[in-house]
Deep mutational scan, measured.
Amino acid sequence: DHWEIRVGDITIHLKDVDEEIIRWVEEALRNGDDLEEIKRWVEEVLR
């Protein structure tokens, strides 16, 4: 699977990601969370 999350001008590409993570990231972006923080979290989860 390949996911693209778009929020404003930001697009995040994710592969082999659980839908729950996608929802979490979308929510975090909508809440204005720091992008670097989100990326770190996702990388942590995917490890």
Rank of each mutant, 00 (worst) to 15 (best):
N31P: 05
I10K: 09
E26H: 15
V25H: 00
E4N: 08
E27Q: 13
D33K: 14
H2W: 14
H2L: 12
E36R: 07
L14M: 07
E44Y: 13
E37T: 12
W41Q: 03
E20N: 12
G32M: 11
R40P: 00
R47Q: 10
D9L: 10
E36M: 09
V7R: 05
D33T: 14
W3M: 04
E36I: 07
D16V: 12
I21V: 08
E44N: 09
E20L: 12
E37G: 10
E43A: 14
R30G: 05
A28N: 04
R6G: 03
G32I: 11
K15R: 13
N31V: 06
A28V: 08
E37R: 12
D1P: 09
G8E: 04
E26P: 00
N31K: 12
V17R: 07
E44L: 13
D9A: 11
V7S: 03
V45H: 10
R6H: 06
K15Y: 12
V25N: 00
R6P: 02
D1Y: 10
W41H: 08
E26S: 15
E44D: 08
E19Y: 12
V7T: 02
R47G: 12
R40Q: 05
V7K: 04
R23M: 07
R40A: 07
E4T: 10
W24M: 09
D1G: 14
I5A: 01
I5F: 13
V25G: 00
N31L: 10
V17N: 03
W41S: 02
W24R: 07
T11D: 03
I21W: 09
R40N: 05
D9G: 08
L35S: 06
D16E: 07
E27F: 15
E26G: 11
N31W: 07
I12R: 01
H13A: 08
H13L: 12
V25D: 00
E43I: 15
I21R: 03
E26I: 15
A28K: 14
E4W: 14
V45I: 11
V45L: 13
I22R: 13
E37Y: 15
D9E: 09
R23V: 05
T11Q: 05
G8M: 06
W41C: 06
R6N: 04
V7W: 10
L35I: 12
D18L: 14
L46F: 07
R40Y: 03
I22A: 06
T11I: 08
R30C: 02
L29T: 02
I5M: 07
V42C: 02
W24H: 07
R30F: 08
V17Q: 04
R47C: 10
D18G: 12
E43D: 08
D33S: 11
I10T: 08
W3S: 03
E27C: 13
L46M: 09
E43G: 06
I12F: 15
V42Q: 00
G32T: 08
R6L: 03
K39W: 14
G32W: 10
I38D: 00
L14P: 02
L35D: 03
L35Q: 06
D1W: 14
V42Y: 06
R40G: 03
R23I: 04
G8I: 06
L35T: 05
D16P: 11
D33P: 10
D33L: 15
E43F: 15
I21N: 01
E20I: 11
D16F: 14
I10A: 07
V17L: 09
I38M: 03
D1F: 14
L46C: 02
E26W: 15
W24Q: 06
V17C: 03
R23F: 05
I12Y: 15
E19W: 13
I5G: 01
D1S: 14
D33F: 13
K39T: 05
W41K: 06
K15C: 09
R6F: 03
H13Y: 14
W3K: 02
G32V: 09
D34M: 14
K15Q: 07
D34E: 08
I5N: 01
I10M: 08
E20R: 14
L14W: 12
V42K: 00
R40H: 04
V17S: 05
D9V: 11
D9H: 07
V25A: 04
D34Q: 11
V25M: 05
E20H: 11
V25K: 00
E36Q: 08
V17E: 02
L46S: 01
L35Y: 09
E4Y: 14
L46Y: 05
W41V: 09
R40K: 10
D18P: 13
L29D: 00
G8W: 08
H2R: 12
D33C: 14
I21A: 03
H2A: 09
R47W: 03
D18T: 13
V42T: 01
H13N: 08
V42L: 14
K39R: 13
V7E: 02
W41R: 11
W41T: 03
I38Q: 00
K39I: 11
A28W: 12
I22M: 12
R30K: 09
R40E: 03
G8Q: 04
D34I: 14
V25F: 05
E27I: 13
G32Q: 07
T11P: 02
V17F: 08
E36N: 08
I12P: 01
W24C: 03
K15E: 06
N31M: 07
I10R: 09
K39S: 05
R30Y: 07
E4L: 14
H13W: 14
R47M: 09
L46G: 01
E4I: 15
E19I: 13
T11R: 05
L46R: 02
H13R: 12
E26R: 15
I38N: 00
K15A: 08
I21E: 01
L29H: 01
R23E: 02
I10L: 08
E20P: 06
I38T: 01
W41L: 05
G8K: 03
R47K: 09
V42M: 07
V45P: 00
G32R: 09
H13F: 14
R23Y: 03
R40T: 04
G8A: 05
V7D: 02
H2F: 12
E19L: 10
W3A: 02
T11L: 10
E19Q: 09
R30L: 07
D18N: 13
V45G: 03
W3L: 04
V25Y: 02
E20D: 07
D1R: 09
G32Y: 09
D33N: 12
I22Y: 12
D9P: 09
R23C: 01
I38A: 01
I10G: 03
N31R: 15
V25L: 09
K39L: 12
L29Y: 06
I5C: 04
K39C: 05
I5S: 01
E20T: 12
E19S: 12
D16I: 11
A28Y: 10
W3H: 03
L35K: 04
T11A: 09
W3C: 04
R6T: 07
E37M: 13
L29E: 01
